[in-house]
């Protein structure tokens, strides 16, 4: 009983310790990046470029939905219609752009990374890399995490662009607010720090999702079933820590 209670406290700490150690090794291996440069490009395409369509789709829908719902809630004729733009655009830039991107990529990129590394672990491919004299952390993890840090802000920009665009389009086509008024509202309430905050957020999300997924995948145990477990855990843990980081960032930076 005492041991179980102790485990509840100690297990997360032990996990955090192993995660930190993995990151520490990864940072140590950044210097060897030139050897793994090809991997970095490959990961940037896989995690970044290839994710653009799905991220744009999700952002497009969330932008459109924001517009429709804001219009639905603004029934008072006293409030000008441009308010819709003033609400949709900052919420896209501040929150939705980064979080929608994050969630989509936790599923798409996080799960892929965990499954890839998990399979490599259980089929001894990681051991094979190590036995050749390669730094498996440098070879496998550093390019993935770096690709996340570099490409997530890019995807965030794409998400905001498409989200705001679709919000504006739906507002105009649906007769809620003409595009010009939408933009007037957006410009009036625009805070220059908002997009910077969004980029910071997406960098943090990119780091969290990729590093957590790498951690889960790299330490997979127990064959095909273990790979499945790691994949699920990676996606779930990424989402949870993404929300946590979202709150922490909002509380500290805003």
């Amino acid at each position: 009983m005492v041991k179980q209670t102790l485990d509840i406290v100690l297990n997360p700490l032990a996990t955090l310790g192993r995660y930190s150690r993995l990151l520490f090794h990864a940072f140590g291996a950044v210097a060897e990046l030139s050897i793994y440069r090809k991997n970095l490009w490959e990961q940037m395409v896989k995690s970044g470029v290839d994710s653009i369509p799905i991220v744009c789709m999700a952002a497009g829908f969330s932008g459109a939905v924001s517009t429709v719902q804001t219009a639905y809630q603004l029934v008072t004729p006293l409030i000008p219609r441009s308010t819709i733009g003033a609400i949709v655009v900052p919420s896209m830039i501040l929150e939705l752009g980064a979080v929608v991107t994050g969630f989509i990529l936790a599923g798409r990129v996080g799960a892929r990374i965990a499954a890839e590394l998990g399979t490599m672990r259980v089929t001894e491919q990681i051991d094979a890399l190590e036995s050749m004299g390669l730094n498996s952390i440098g070879y496998l993890i550093v390019p993935r995490v770096l690709a996340g840090i570099i490409m997530f802000p890019v995807l965030y920009v794409a998400a905001c662009f498409v989200g705001i665009g679709s919000g504006m389009l739906i507002g105009d086509l649906g007769g809620f607010v003409p595009a010009e008024e939408f933009l007037v509202g957006a410009r009036e309430f625009f805070q220059p720090f908002d997009p910077i905050f969004g980029v910071i957020k997406s960098i943090v999300f990119g780091f969290l999702i990729t590093s957590i997924s790498c951690f889960k995948g790299y330490y997979t145990q127990g064959g095909a079933e273990g790979v499945g477990r790691s994949t699920t855990q990676a996606a779930v843990a990424s989402c949870v820590f993404l929300l946590l980081a979202d709150l922490v960032l909002a509380a500290t930076l805003l």
Binding site: W41, E42, M44, V45, G48, V49, I52, V89, I150, M151, P153, V154, V157, A158, C160, F161, A186, R187, F190, P192, P195, V199
Partner: peptide, 28 residues
Amino acid sequence: FSNEIKVGLTIIVATVIFILGVRYFEDL
């Protein structure tokens, strides 16, 4: 296209959109 070209192009396009977008909303 090689991976380098794809990534480079994506990053450049995103940067341009970001800068122009911010300038637009800032009324610059």
